[in-house]
Design a protein around this nucleic acid. Structure first.
Lengths: 347, 347
DNA sequence: GGCAGTTTCGGAAGCGCTTCCGACAACCAT
DNA sequence: ATGGTTGTCGGAAGCGCTTCCGAAACTGCC
């Protein structure tokens, strides 16, 4: 069948010997067409390789069947996995996915300024980034449902992990291993530095130490831009302390990877000389033997999409949904050994 | 301004005191509107927050301004980075990006069977996967321009690296370091196992060894599914040989990461006991000190998009475009030491 | 001052589909 | 047989925009 793109409904109708009205009904399997007629129309459509014009159909029925995904860092595992989960259930529900990648703050402000998705989608899902008030005001102009995937968001229904709980799992793990001098390498997003990204991951550090009766030493807290290179930078800073930590809690696995690299280069062994724990369970963490708090990323995407679909159907849903995390103990953490033990065992 | 979604062109026209025809011309900044009138219309549109209905506009002018990206593994760095590059130039050119994620072979066959993007896009770009003949036949039905990003593709214009050259850089590096027993861990895509993925990366291995006068030992070739876990599996297989290689060339960094993990667990040192080189320059490779052949991924996406735009404008373009790769020597490779040297230096 | 040429604008006919509404036929129960 | 259902289908009116075409107004020129 040649790609006869110029075929329209009327042609199919004529070929099937029915009116366009009936053909339309048959194609959109609506009520009111006899099985025989429907079959005939479908057969003709198939044969001549016809497919309805989404523009015309959308215009006539006032529907879009599209959702916009606005995602900051599509090249990172976390965002990609989230998009993958979102996409699969949205597609299954007959929605097309429009991708808006806002890599840096410039992209981002342009997106909110121009709202390129206006009038094009039934909903937008913001993937794992906090939405500023002005941005929310702009989004409002679109007049569509908005949900947040993978990040807490006061303004919209969301599904994500409980950052505070996840961080607690990480820090408590270190505490249980007898560590008391615990460093933290926190991440901020370089694209919008003034945002308190994942505050729960910071707060839990304070809370856990306090609960353990340990006073937090501000010197042990190193806040860096996201990314392994900055994780390295943060670790270097901690190492330069007169009294470095014996264990480090990193906000994300990728931060930890960078940290581990400076450790290695400094000739320090993980976990003997430094324990390290992080959050995410990046696909490579198992191979780097990193102890981490795992979160199910594609599942969060799927759940978000399901929540969105429910909202679109006008159903009531939870405004917030937390998925569970799980500590995965691997080889990067170990019990704190006393000084004697530590220097003595020179294996 | 409240989200008055129900505003249409006629309203704006009325408010501006012109006919819909003129309003339309003003909005689409077409020829034939006086500057004063245009300004007035624009001002009104801005004030009432009006934006044209893409469905109606598209229907009337018979245009779509959308391109479909069909990508297999959006959660992987390579694909994400490619999409990021593609998206940025497509968006800048006023195109919307429709994302079709075909994670597994089931998704994939469903995509080609249903062609969900039919009549919705002006072009499709297949991101880094080979298109089967039947699939190409189906794509043809869409009657749109098709290009391939990041993967060679006989059927469509493409931009990617020269796999053979890149692989040669990797293998030659090992040869220059005096290695002669060089293993290869090749990757196949588990989603479609029968596809010769990246044949150039295999061929170069043969060619380089031959050029160096080394007979290839089939036992040194380990072909595995893509992914670090299978890289590990491949490495394990090579290690179990009566005479294991002294160096390994892996088809991709992620394969190498897995390989390095089994090395570490086996107590073997990289690079002293085993040199390892790969292809890609994954963002984490620098931190794992992996010697690798770097390829510019987002740039490939951008170039592909530019090629596509040229095609869409009806211009002539190259049918194939190769971007250069570059060997990045890091700490995972070293000169082969003689046996005495090797065991003697027990640092 | 009149005529050709140029701008600026409005009327109206679609773009390809959906769906309301009414027509008609075939069916049931009375 | 008759009236009322029920089921199936066609006519036609849009959906919200663009654009062709012609009218009107305005320019400049001899």
């Amino acid at each position: 069948m040649p790609p006869q793109d110029k075929l329209e409904l009327a042609d199919v109708a004529r070929l099937a010997g029915v009116s366009p009205a009936t053909a339309s009904r048959a194609l959109s399997n609506a009520y009111g067409v006899s099985p025989a007629t429907r079959a005939r129309v479908l057969e003709v459509a198939e044969r001549v390789n016809y497919v309805v014009s989404p523009e015309a159909s959308g215009l006539a029925r006032g529907t879009r069947q599209r959702v916009a995904l606005v995602v900051p860092h599509i090249e990172r595992w976390f965002f990609g996995a989230m998009v993958s989960g979102l996409g699969s259930v949205l597609r299954a529900a007959g929605f097309d996915v429009l991708l808006y990648h806002v890599g840096d703050s410039e992209d981002r402000s342009r997106f909110f300024e121009q709202l390129p998705a206006r009038r094009k989608v039934d909903a937008v899902v913001v993937v794992a980034f906090p939405v500023a008030d002005e941005e929310r005001a702009r989004l409002e102009l679109m007049g569509v449902t908005v949900v947040a995937a993978g990040g807490q968001n006061a303004a919209y229904p969301f599904v994500c992990i409980d950052d505070h709980a996840a961080a607690r799992q990480a820090v408590d793990h270190l505490l249980q291993l007898r560590h008391t001098r615990i460093g933290m390498i926190g991440a901020r997003d370089p694209a919008w530095p003034n945002w308190p990204v994942r505050p729960g991951r910071i707060q839990a550090y304070y809370d856990c130490l306090e609960a353990a009766g340990i006073e937090v030493d501000p010197a042990l807290i190193s806040t860096v831009d996201w990314g392994p290179e900055h994780g390295a930078e943060g670790m270097a800073r901690l190492l330069s302390l007169r009294e470095p930590p014996t264990a480090v809690y990193a906000h994300s696995d990728e931060i930890a990877f960078g940290a581990m690299s400076v450790l290695r280069r400094a000739g320090l062994r993980v976990p003997q000389d430094m324990s390290i724990v992080a959050i995410d369970d990046h696909p490579l963490s198992a191979f780097l033997d990193l102890t981490t708090v795992a979160q199910p990323v594609p599942e969060q995407g799927k759940l978000t999409a399901q929540m969105l679909l429910a909202l679109l159907r006008g159903e009531e849903t939870d405004q917030a949904m937390h998925v569970p995390t799980k500590l995965v103990v691997r080889g990067s953490t170990t019990r704190l050994r006393s000084a004697e033990e530590n220097t003595g065992a020179n294996m």
